[in-house]
Design a protein around this nucleic acid. Structure first.
Lengths: 263, 263
DNA sequence: TGCTAAATCTCGAAC
DNA sequence: GTTCGAGGTTTAGCA
């Protein structure tokens, strides 16, 4: 019944059977649905929350995820993950939208005392999203160009299982010593140092020979410099943006450029 | 110039000076602004991202935070924290909304090739939000009713500084032994066990006497039971929802009830 | 202001 | 399915 338009708008819709049916239809047809109005919100699931009456924006997406947004604050005050089942009803003059999610079992109940606006959207979006300068980019950059970590460093493997987890990069330094590399895209704190230390300890005991630990991060938290030194670990300043630019350069290099750089 | 209505709607607005001016005014007046249309999005800041053309919902809130939502996926694909400065312009027939944030310095640029809908909202929401069954609720419940942890347990202090952090609760058990309690609201993993172990170690060395470690959580991860036992730590199953109900009960108790319960 | 830990964290990958 | 760690994490609480 709804045509090919991108958006249908109901301005100050009454809370009645007609409005209820339209909302039910837009949910059944997997449209994106915006409801703006004065409402109360309850949540029960992993935790429990309550929010008294106020004006909010409610978003139901095509994957049946739910967002409740207040006029301020960048995060949603209540939400529901993809795959909800919705029930719409009218109770004591209020339009009630209930969303139920399984695994984890959670319920969000929204009671609208007033509806200011209802919008039904038919959006198309197939584009791909790309993100750069992540910790994974830093890891790739070191593997592609190990000299940014240390002259003479040669990666041997990465994501290697070492109790109590996985080391980011594992290799050999210019003097033939084993070296474990822990990468952080932000300032490395106490936990990063302790984690690296645990890896070094495990590998030392396993290999029964010297193993270096190298922490690669933009900076190291002030109090942790001493801890790092006392544990005989190294620190190498490394910026995620610089790593991203190395990947970009490598990606855009022609074959000739590549051969020149690596001859 | 905009009156007291809750919502103004521009249906398929043209990309021209008039639309640009209206958007600029709604930003200047700190309205909540929704823009729905076909757009491209770029982000530069702590990382870098790119998203090609597609239909999206853009939200600018009254605190000048920004959200870019795709038709599916519960999380925003791009966002900007509260306190942005916006610039609106028309470039090569596209409406360009640029948001700039300081500290961290970040930029989100949205280029609309088409606008399906623009909504300007004047929302009022003063209600308070309450959340229950958090880790803090669990801590409070144990302090109020220590027997849920262990018969005869007596809390001495909480949030006590013990390297390398703060212990959740610190007390004495029925046999007079010191006990450190580590609380987790979800299944406790290896890290929780290791952290508790570090606290116990520090306190043992400091006090030079026996110190027990008690891990209170809904459950313990499978592989960690052995680790817990080898470190001679205890585990007490404890549910956040149950703790919340204890707090609720305590809160709603009359003075008479309280005296009866604690006589 | 800076740091630390929790979160209805979410998400993805690996086992 | 479970577990584990990254994230433009964000946010709240303190030193």
């Amino acid at each position: 019944m709804l045509g090919v338009r991108k958006a249908w708008v109901l301005y100050t819709p009454e809370i009645n059977e007609e409005t209820k049916t339209l909302i039910e239809q837009s949910l059944a047809q997997r449209r994106m649905l915006l409801l703006i109005g004065k409402c109360r919100v309850e949540y029960q699931g992993r935790a429990t929350s309550r929010l008294d009456a106020g004006d909010r924006l409610i978003i139901v997406k095509q994957d049946h995820s739910l967002l409740v947004h207040r006029p301020i604050g960048h995060e949603a005050v209540n939400w529901q993950l993809s795959g909800c089942v919705f029930r719409v009803s009218i109770e004591e003059g209020a339009l009630v939208v209930t969303s139920i999610h399984q695994r984890p079992h959670e319920l969000v109940k929204i009671c609208f005392d007033q509806l200011h606006l209802a919008v039904i959207l038919n959006l198309k979006d197939q584009a791909e999203f790309t993100l750069h300068a992540t910790e994974e980019d830093m890891q790739k950059a070191i593997l592609l160009e190990p000299s940014i970590l240390e002259d003479g460093f040669t990666p041997v493997s990465y994501e290697k299982k070492v109790e109590p987890g996985f080391v980011d990069i594992y290799g050999v330094d210019s003097e033939g010593r084993f070296a474990v590399v822990e990468i952080k895209r932000k300032a490395a704190g106490r936990n990063a140092v302790l984690q690296l230390s645990r890896y070094v300890k495990t590998l030392r005991e396993g290999a029964n020979r010297e193993v270096r630990g190298i922490l690669a991060a933009p900076e190291i938290a002030k109090g942790c410099q001493r801890l790092l030194e006392s544990l005989k670990l190294s620190f190498k300043p490394l910026n995620p943006q610089k790593c991203a630019s190395i990947l970009q350069r490598t990606k855009t290099l022609s074959l000739t450029d590549f051969l020149e750089t690596h001859q």
